[in-house]
């Protein structure tokens, strides 16, 4: 127990900026959005009519929205699994005690600083049908010249690759941190017992890493649902024919291109439920300070 300074007013003064900004720019607009989710917007947003849960009924019964949710989960699932498997593999190698380990670590994690927009721009260039290096590599290796942007599945693959690459640094950082909590004695004891590399990984490293894996699953889901808007906007704009139209992109379109703010707000509420569930799981299981950058 810390000894405290006296005074009741001063601490509230200290907290005032955080609280004012939180209420004015976070709680109030969120509340207004939730209210708006019960309204239907007509005439390009000029008229609002109370619609009860009508927007949600519309969303849940719309095949178009089902497709959006489906695309979101395919995208998210691939980014989470790809990012975690590759990230863990790289972290295991980078965790070996070799000379220059620090240099390697930096060389592996620095894309963390890059934005989804930059990742999108560069990967769009690499995948470009006419000139892209990856198109060329595909031709040399497999004799095909795929038109990535024209095909739905290929476009999905393209944005998954870009999104996974962009978040790899983040995953490696936390896997390396998690690996530091694996006590060397355990592994040495296993060595004495004659365990091989895979047995050690499966029976010692992986179980001890499970809190990190859990944390990263949640953070990667939040990343893929909320942070990849720029990447989609620059690479595919949700296309072709909605093949990469994930929830955040659909929400943006409804709100700011079609001016259907009511139904957009309903989608915001669905995203809120999603982020709440993910955060709750994350708090219950690890208690680590969550970071969204917020």
């Amino acid at each position: 127990m810390k000894s405290k300074y006296p005074g009741k007013l001063l601490p509230l003064l200290f907290l005032a900026p955080t609280l004012i900004v939180s209420v004015l720019f976070l709680y109030y607009p969120a509340g207004m959005s939730f209210r708006l989710s019960l309204y239907k917007t007509l005439f390009m947003g000029r008229k609002k009519v109370f619609n009860g849960l009508g927007n949600f009924v519309d969303l849940f019964t719309s095949p178009k929205f089902h497709a959006v949710v489906g695309k979101s989960f395919i995208f998210s699932f691939s980014v989470v699994v790809g990012g975690l498997v590759i990230g863990l593999g790289i972290a295991l190698l980078a965790n070996r005690k070799v000379r220059g380990a620090r240099f390697y670590r930096t060389g592996l994690i620095w894309p963390y600083a890059l934005s989804p927009a930059i990742a999108g721009t560069i990967w769009l260039f690499l995948f470009n049908p006419n000139t892209g290096m990856l198109t060329y590599v595909m031709e040399v290796l497999f004799g095909v010249q795929p038109d990535w942007l024209a095909s739905g599945p290929l476009s999905m693959f393209m944005v998954i690759v870009a999104a996974t690459w962009k978040n790899l640094g983040y995953n490696i950082i936390f896997f390396l941190a998690g690996l530091q909590n694996v006590p060397g004695e355990f592994l040495e004891a296993a060595d004495v017992d004659g365990a091989n590399v895979f047995q050690k990984f499966w029976h010692i490293t992986l179980p001890l890493l499970s809190p990190t894996i859990f944390f990263l699953v949640v953070m990667n889901m939040i990343y893929s649902f909320f942070r990849t808007f720029a990447l989609i906007d620059i690479m595919t704009k949700g296309g072709p024919a909605g093949a990469t139209n994930i929830m955040i992109f659909n929400l943006y379109r409804d709100a700011f291109q079609y001016f259907r703010s009511g139904i957009a707000a309903s989608q915001s509420l669905l995203l809120f439920v999603l982020v709440s569930i993910l955060t709750l799981i994350q708090f219950k299981t690890s208690g680590r300070g969550v970071y969204y950058g917020g």
Binding site: L251, A255, S268, L271, F272
Partner: peptide, 13 residues
């Protein structure tokens, strides 16, 4: 406030 990233409140913000 961690539950309220920009997309959740974007319309009203």
């Amino acid at each position: 406030t961690l539950l309220l990233p920009v997309p959740v409140r974007i319309v009203s913000l």
